[in-house]
Nucleic acid binder design. Structure first.
Lengths: 350, 350
DNA sequence: TGATTTTCCGTGTACGGTAACGGAAAATAT
DNA sequence: ATATTTTCCGTTACCGTACACGGAAAATCA
């Protein structure tokens, strides 16, 4: 019976005094089983420690299970590109287990676009969803619907303060700001720091880097209380406006320590390059191609990076593990490591 | 991913005008097939793009394929412990595909012990071997034998300059030394640097950190030619001898910049802790528990780390992919990223 | 009570390979 | 020429699960 711990569905059937068809029915909650039989089968499964054979299962099953990734649209060279690469990796892995990964996109600045994307996601009837929460309230509504339908969901990048998610993969935001301050100052007192921020036209969008900024400011005030921290707002689209704002910064409140908390530090680097400004210590986040270029040219001294590709891949894997391989639940909150990149190790990143 | 992807062994058999038994024989080089039939089958496989169904294969096959990991013995808290963790991960993954991972150990200072380990490895009749080359000549002899038997092998940690390996996973050693110099000096001129090295009693053992040291020294002489670089030798076992050597260093040729190129920087940290020496900038390699402790306490400012666990896991995976899943050959040389750890990001490492 | 519907469950086949078995054809020996 | 090997290949019994099918028993209806 228990040869090599290889307990089959037949062993369970025999021990429970039913046929393998019945065992299969309870395994998949397919109904058509009396409460008594179901209880008996469940008990035997427990006692024998029966685990279905993944390969036999995958071989016998016809239908393809879907996993949806719900992420923002993006242009080439933007942050989400790396996430998309990770989705590709996750897709390959999922394919091994006969699962298909579908990517559904939305405009991260348009809530209705997000709502339509949610509807499309449900239409796919997935077993699981990977999502990065951009619109707080809408997302809360959506994940409640997912829970109701018994669809697993996994947060990447950031998460909401609710309790139904299967797992979360992302960076510890507060700590990343704290670390950033240490990298920027090299641990030695500095007179002033200029934080470059994106001017937000639309209100209501939550700022995902707020926590990071808090960590940064805490480090500064704990270590160098007399250091002056200023905020400078720039326009991400309009080059002229942006250059004007930075010109004004350098004339009115100059600092040789510049930092940004999102992935757009290349905007600052572009300015420094054109103006021929050297000698600033500049630190930013994330490994966009343009950021790496700035790092190599020396307009940026350090980047703090995370493997958002691995996050996405891990998120997909966790759904595969649970819903296809019937493994036990994964670790809930998974904080990615924070990678410090400079010109000497960036070429070996990834 | 392919078009239909639904090509089975029966399709191949039909198209080649043979039975599936014959197709299976050529698939596994099991012989008992005429040259003509074999050629025909191979051609059809190529044309149809046939890929055997992994799950069906795993379901039908009885025997367990073995993968051997050939690594040095170690004590708790030593470098190879992390590698062993990675072997565990690789083992879980391999188990999904019905493969068993066997670890064979040897004394890295005893060549005969290594030779015995090689013999034991061959006795296991593995489909693949993961190894870290410690004894150059003996390893060369061994891998030649592996090639002759058609056994795949993958290098981790470092590799030899021969051409039969399936893949290599390790750190770019020269670059890691170069990077280390930048981290130690923070890119600003320093007067002197003391390199702490392990006094080697036995000759003939190759020093795996030589290349790293070269990278370090190149950085220093390129950036700060007047910086004095000294070598100080310490004993790894005998605490008194070690303390005496370090005492002498601090009195005769002191420097506030200390570096080690292996994983033993905690030896230096231990000295600094006991002597109450503060104010040195100390950089080392690898995330041993003792190194992390020293980092948190501030006796070490930075560690350069690699995920040797991921290396081992990736090495095992590559053998699984090729020999069990019949995938195409993996990327040959895989350089791990170099991670910079300080007290603010080390707690999120892994 | 007999007819009809539900509930519940056993049986059988398909899924795509693996490998043992045995037999026909070809090669070699007697 | 027949007897004996070899070579080569088709057949077949699994591997463990999913799911359609159909039938017996129980419940509901007439």
């Amino acid at each position: 019976m228990e040869e090599n711990g290889k307990i089959t569905i037949n062993d369970v059937a025999k021990a429970a005094g039913v046929s393998k068809g019945t065992v299969d029915r309870v395994l998949h909650n397919r109904g058509e089983v009396s409460a008594a039989s179901k209880a008996r089968v469940l008990k035997v499964i427990e006692e024998l420690g029966f685990r279905p054979n993944v390969h036999a299962s995958l071989l016998a099953t016809r239908k393809v299970r879907k996993i949806v990734c719900l992420i923002p649209e993006f242009h080439q060279g933007e942050f989400w590109e790396l996430t998309e690469r990770g989705i590709g990796t996750g897709m390959e892995n999922a394919a091994k287990y006969g699962a298909a990964v579908v990517t559904v996109r939305y405009d991260q600045y348009d809530m209705e676009s997000f709502q339509r994307a949610c509807a499309r996601t449900l239409d796919e009837e997935p077993v699981g969803v990977v999502l990065a929460p951009m619109f707080r309230n809408e997302t809360l509504k959506f994940v409640k619907e997912l829970s109701a339908r018994g669809i697993y969901y996994v947060y990447i990048d950031s998460k909401l303060e609710e309790d139904g998610y299967l797992a979360y993969f992302g960076m510890p935001m507060y700590q990343s700001g704290y670390l950033c301050a240490d990298i920027l100052t090299l641990g030695s007192p500095v007179r002033s720091v200029n934080i470059i921020r994106i001017a937000r036209d639309k209100k209501g969008l939550s700022d995902p880097t707020l926590t990071r900024r808090t960590g940064f400011i805490d480090y500064i005030s704990e270590h160098f209380p007399e250091c002056e921290v200023r905020n400078v707002f720039i326009d991400p689209k309009d080059r002229d406006l942006r250059f004007k704002a930075l010109d004004r910064m350098f004339s009115e409140s100059p600092s040789d320590h510049l930092v940004m908390f999102n992935s757009r530090i290349h905007l600052v680097a572009g300015y420094l390059r054109e103006r021929g400004v050297r000698g600033c210590r500049v630190v930013g986040f994330d490994v966009l191609e343009k950021n790496l270029a700035a790092l190599r040219e020396g307009y940026v001294q350090a980047l703090i990076a995370q493997h958002s590709d691995q996050q996405a891949a891990a998120a997909i894997d966790s759904i595969v593990e649970v819903s296809l391989l019937h493994r036990s639940l994964p670790k809930r909150d998974n904080f990615t490591q924070m990678d410090i990149l400079n010109r000497y190790n960036c070429d070996y990143y990834l």
